[in-house]
């Protein structure tokens, strides 16, 4: 697994762009939970980086496709395919991620 960020570096509701296995990814903290997703919308293939968060999902800033942060599932149109969600572990005060 790769260390992506220290747990104290993100406040609840914040996010950071990282790379996991050379794939652009986004680590997002919601309350005390951390999620690491591939930072690419499955609809138009561009970044989700600045997309608004809603419940436990992220909304694509261009066409408003919504993806579940836990499963990657597309929750609304125009996306129909899921996004990649990385395996996450919290240890040694840091967030670690790996390919699913």
């Amino acid at each position: 697994m790769e260390r992506v960020i220290g747990i104290d570096e993100l406040q609840p509701g914040e996010r950071r762009s990282v790379f996991v296995d050379d794939i652009p990814a986004l680590v997002i903290r919601i309350e005390s939970a951390y999620f690491v997703i591939e930072d690419v919308c499955s609809h138009d293939g561009q970044a989700l980086t600045d997309g608004p968060l809603q419940d436990c999902s992220i909304i694509c800033p261009r066409h408003s496709a919504r993806f579940d942060l836990k499963t990657g599932k597309a929750l609304c149109m125009p996306a129909t395919e899921p996004i990649r969600v990385f395996k996450v572990e919290i240890r040694d005060g840091a967030v670690w991620a790996a390919m699913p």
Binding site: R16, S17, E31, D50, P52, L53, Q54
Partner: peptide, 19 residues
């Protein structure tokens, strides 16, 4: 099931961007 309050953040709120 993780319970989280509704959070809605608009873009460009001191977040890193793809720039």
């Amino acid at each position: 099931m993780l319970s989280v309050p509704v959070q809605f953040q608009g873009p460009n709120q001191n977040m890193p961007t793809a720039t």
